[in-house]
Design a protein around this nucleic acid. Structure first.
Lengths: 197, 197
DNA sequence: TGGTTTCGCTACTTGGAGTATCGATACCTA
DNA sequence: TAGGTATCGATACTCCAAGTAGCGAAACCA
């Protein structure tokens, strides 16, 4: 292979694997201190990295946290089965993720910041929400507006509970949420409950 | 008793009616600039009041916004009718309130702050959520955990939509939300209707 | 060994939350 | 009309975190 064709490393000092360390430090620091007290200085110190290094890689604290959440959530889980199974497993999956230490706090915190920051809101909507929205639209065969409502209901509920109590939603309440949402999106036999317009 | 003992104004310079002005200025400033850019300095300037006056009356910006929301929401609407009518009207009521200019932004913003601020979270839960929770428990005859879930779902959904899009939820989506939630709380899912009608 | 790029460090700017102080003001009562 | 009292307005401050600038040092490749 001739060097430098496709994925050759560029010359210069390599970017050592700081991203995993920073992601881990971000979650643990947010878990310990909460979103607001988790300053970039502290995250950098925990990760064993200079603050300037973080700002060289992410334009803002919010963008860092969004990437951190992307890393924590991982790829879209492609489930198969009836519509009911799809919706149920998706809800349990996101609820479990948000329940992981630091993840819920980070999500709620960056969401809060995004309310007053259109740039961050764009990052959040494009990088975090859109992939999962598209996957759900594809898997469920539902129009965009219904999938958006589903996401609003599920994520909104989980974050509201997290924000009001400081604790993630219990399994029993997640089950109740599934029970509440499921009839609207899937019948027991997997057929759509109402005509899709 | 000397005249004016019971409900007499205390001596000294009267607290002129600044609260209404501050509330109005808070909502309009947040509506214009968003929660984060609506600094206390700016709110004070808009209200024609000194910043120190605001901090004499409220311990923090978050506490001010909570009181502002209390003022905007007004007293608990005591509705009557079937459980379905109660739930439906409550959802439409809170959706309309959150759709008012500035209210949704203020709510989402203070909610965001509360995530990392236990003091503010306490204020939010006690002063804002609890009265409506108790009223709903009483009206629906539901246990606390189910009413809390209802509030999480409804308010969480509305705030999530507000935060992700910057716009309040459309009437059509609010109707869909009602349709989704209502069977769980008002239909025959094993729980008897309340014999109120 | 030299070229290239990133890293760490220190120091800085910016901006908002919240505090301290003090004279001015508005109301009540005598 | 004078005095007591409590709030108001204005100014100036502290504190803290986000984000920036500049430079020498380190790490890799050829």
């Amino acid at each position: 292979m001739t060097p430098g064709t496709t994925s050759a490393r560029p010359p210069g000092r390599p970017r050592t694997g700081v991203n995993p360390a920073v992601f881990a430090a971000t979650l643990s620091t947010i878990h310990e201190l909460g979103y607001a007290r988790a300053t970039v200085d502290r995250i950098a110190a925990t990760a064993g990295v200079a603050k300037t290094t973080i700002y060289r890689r992410w334009p803002s604290k919010g963008a860092l946290v969004v990437d951190c959440l992307l890393d924590a959530f991982g790829p879209v889980p492609v489930a198969s089965g009836s519509r009911a199974q799809l919706v149920s497993s998706a809800i349990h999956w996101i609820a479990a993720k948000i329940g992981e230490p630091g993840v819920g706090d980070a999500f709620a915190g960056v969401f809060s910041d995004a309310v007053s920051d259109p740039t961050l809101r764009e990052i959040l909507a494009t990088r975090l929400q859109e992939p999962y929205r598209l996957a759900l639209q594809d898997a469920l065969g539902e129009p965009e507006n219904r999938v958006l409502l589903l996401i609003d209901v599920v994520v909104g509920t989980l974050l509201h509970r997290m924000g009001m109590t400081g604790e993630p939603m219990t399994d029993a309440d997640v089950a109740a949420l599934v029970e509440m949402v499921l009839p609207y999106f899937a019948d027991d036999d997997g057929r759509p409950r109402r005509a899709v317009d």
